[in-house]
Write a protein that binds this DNA or RNA. Structure first.
Length: 411
DNA sequence: GCACTACCGTGT
DNA sequence: CACGGTAGTG
């Protein structure tokens, strides 16, 4: 089962376009493992870490230099010949471009957000290279059902336990820190593996808490509704493929589909819309985002001082951030969110001035500063050059019948 | 539509 | 008590 190492290939990419260390451990995906490389010299051009991710049929290993991403593919035995190996590396390269969405120019977006928003311009140079991954919707959905009322380190453990418990080991590989230790890599399990009757009890005993039932019922419903026949070529189940078709749906319809699952509320649905269904403008709102809005965007704090996230407040925050940042608001939000995780070094910023919801009209002295802070508050969302056609259409369809569809009862 | 409350487990 | 919420009530 042990696989032999192969050489790394290089994909030229400026570090401002992608920071692996920031993106892979910031709570988007919970299945990347990071290893220190024990660099003896202080050469800043050498990678300090390696990151690994197990796909259905291979393990992808990544390192980063200031000017490129180094990648290599590890396959299970039997090992392919040289020609087959080249094909696999070509496939991995295509996967990388898709997964990291490298056709999106992140540096341009940072400029755009910085010119729209003073708060963003203050942090953008310290938190560069943070982009939204384009994940597999099935893994993304289950991972974020785990995320409710939870923290990153525990979510990571849960998702890894899920993989270890419900999918066969693909291969093992020695860790790159020179210790000689071998690690076993598991893909993310398919829906049918989690739809089995005794799954929820087992997950309970694995420490999943009340999310155990959510996961089981979601998997069961998905398999019952959309099947588990395995596509001969794609290698994945029909319900996983169906989830991917939500990418072709408009935001409101896709969200309505996601909300049908147990354990999926507005916040989790929006995370999936943003992180695996390509809805770039969706801003998932949680308590952190609310705090950020209060501290730096003049959002009025709740009268009672409680953090009650009502649907109304959620909608208000979400739409206002779209007004601030535009068609890629969800991407911008993740930069702010990541900087907040690193316990916010925003001290030099001016105090919050502009109420996000209701601007005070009798304070002219402040109205100028408000304009300074958030120049685009009163202007409609931009559908400028940065937004591609699919994003523009998202703004276009403002109402949809599916928005009114209620979460139907299930047994 | 809207405001509660319980909830599994971990960290402070 | 809070935590990167949600389902179930009234």
């Amino acid at each position: 089962m042990t696989s032999l190492p192969t050489a790394f290939l290089a994909l030229p990419l400026p570090i401002v376009q992608l920071s692996l260390s920031a993106v892979l451990k910031c709570g988007q995906s919970f299945r990347w493992t990071a290893y220190s490389l024990n660099i003896d010299s202080e050469n800043a051009c050498l990678p300090t870490h390696e990151y690994r991710f197990c796909l259905r049929d291979r393990v992808v290993c990544l390192r980063q230099t200031p000017t490129s991403i180094l990648y290599r593919t590890v396959l299970p035995n039997p090992q392919p010949n040289v020609d087959q190996r080249k094909l696999h590396e070509a496939e991995t390269l295509l996967w990388l471009k898709d997964y990291f969405q490298l056709d999106v120019n992140l540096a341009s977006l940072y400029e755009e957000w910085g010119s729209r928003d003073k708060v963003f311009s203050e942090i953008k140079d310290r938190f560069s290279g943070i982009r939204i991954l384009r994940q597999d919707p099935w893994e993304n959905l289950i991972s974020f059902i785990c995320s409710s009322n939870n923290n990153i380190s525990r979510i990571t453990k849960m998702v890894q336990n899920l993989s270890k418990e419900y999918s066969s080991p693909l291969l093992s590989l020695s860790v790159p820190d020179g210790s000689g230790v071998e690690e076993i890599y598991h893909p993310f399990p398919p829906p049918s593996a989690l739809a089995h009757p005794d799954v929820s009890a087992r997950l309970r005993s694995l420490g999943f808490g009340y999310r155990a039932e959510f996961i089981h019922r979601t998997a069961k419903m998905l398999v019952e509704t959309h099947g588990n026949t395995v596509h001969p070529r794609e290698q994945d189940e029909s319900s996983e493929q169906w989830l991917r078709t939500l990418r072709d749906m408009n935001t409101e319809d896709a969200r309505a589909e996601l909300l049908k699952f147990v354990g999926v509320g507005r916040k989790v649905a929006d995370c999936v819309l943003l992180m695996s269904l390509g809805k770039t403008d969706v801003v998932p709102v949680d308590t952190h985002v609310y705090q950020i809005a209060i501290k730096y965007y003049g959002m009025k704090a709740s009268p009672k001082g409680k953090m009650n996230m009502t649907p109304k407040l959620y909608e208000e925050l979400s739409t206002k951030f779209v007004q601030v940042w535009g068609g890629y608001a969800g991407w911008a939000h993740s930069v702010l969110f990541t900087s907040d995780l690193k316990s916010f070094s925003l001290h030099g910023l001016p105090p919050p001035m502009s109420p996000l919801s209701t601007p005070t009209k009798n304070r002219k002295k402040r109205s100028r500063e408000m304009t300074d802070l958030v120049p685009t508050f009163s202007t409609p969302p931009s559908t400028s050059s940065l937004s591609d056609s699919s994003t523009a259409t998202e703004f276009a369809c403002s109402k949809s019948p599916a928005e009114r569809v209620k979460k139907r009862a299930r047994k």
